[in-house]
Amino acid sequence: MCGIAGIIHRGKSSNVGGEMTAMLQALKHRGPDSTGYAVYGEGGDPKDYIMRIKVAEAEDRKTGHGVHKLIADRIARVDEILAEHGAKVKSKEAIREYALRYVLSHDGDTAAMATHIEEDKGTEILSMGNGLELIKDLGDASDVAGAYGLNDFTGTHGIGHTRMATESDVDIKSAHPYWAFPYNDISVVHNGQITNYWIMRREMERKGHRFQSNCDSELLAVYTAHNLKNGMSLEDSLKKSISEIDGVFTYLVATKDQLGMAKDTMAAKPLVLYESDDLIAMASEEVAIRAILPQEIDTYDPYDEEVRVWQA
């Protein structure tokens, strides 16, 4: 039960960080619990990866002073594992005590490395990819963007989310977007609820995928990752989800150079679309699009079972 937003510039970079912040701030009332971004920069050397991790949860931080040592230990362990897999840390930045951004150079199996890092229960990789920067934390868009220095981020496209917790907890691991672990550069935001979640989740777990939270939206990320890994195109995966996933949902998927949306058969979750030659913007409410495009524009609602994919 949330607000979602997405933006994609065709063939040029722009200040997507600032644009997403303005859009998500306008959607604050739809989800006061947490805010998240997945924004995509230019991406340089294919062997360079940006990895964002968090090593403590909201409830850990309530436990007292012991948590500082715990956090330090977990970070040390991450550094050890990176070294073990031959990844070279180009830069390491602690944005918050528990949230870090690494720039790595790695020529090997990133999936194996990611799995190894997540063996430590408290550590979660929020995202890894050439261009993807995934940021999520408790609070509204301006808090999160301010803390993570996102307002000046330049890139081609991005998706974002403001969350109102339904049946799972208010914490970072249940915040959106979800990265499609361990596949580079895929992220998902979702508004709605999935009512065959546990059936689908057990199916995905049997196929070897991991889940970090009990949030139904994580399933969409895993599901998309599973399909893409098996050679399906993003568009086909979105189409297939409409018949396989029960409930009501509108969700956005971003990959390194694409942005896709899908709306379920009940069309119960809102999305407003604005399309022009060089910019496509979408959000749960028009007010978010208006936050970045004050001039008179034409917008419309996608219909039920509609699937769209845009190329950056």
Partner: peptide, 9 residues
């Protein structure tokens, strides 16, 4: 309204 997000409105 079809969800709690819309209910707030």
């Amino acid at each position: 309204w079809l969800g709690p997000d819309d209910l707030a409105l």
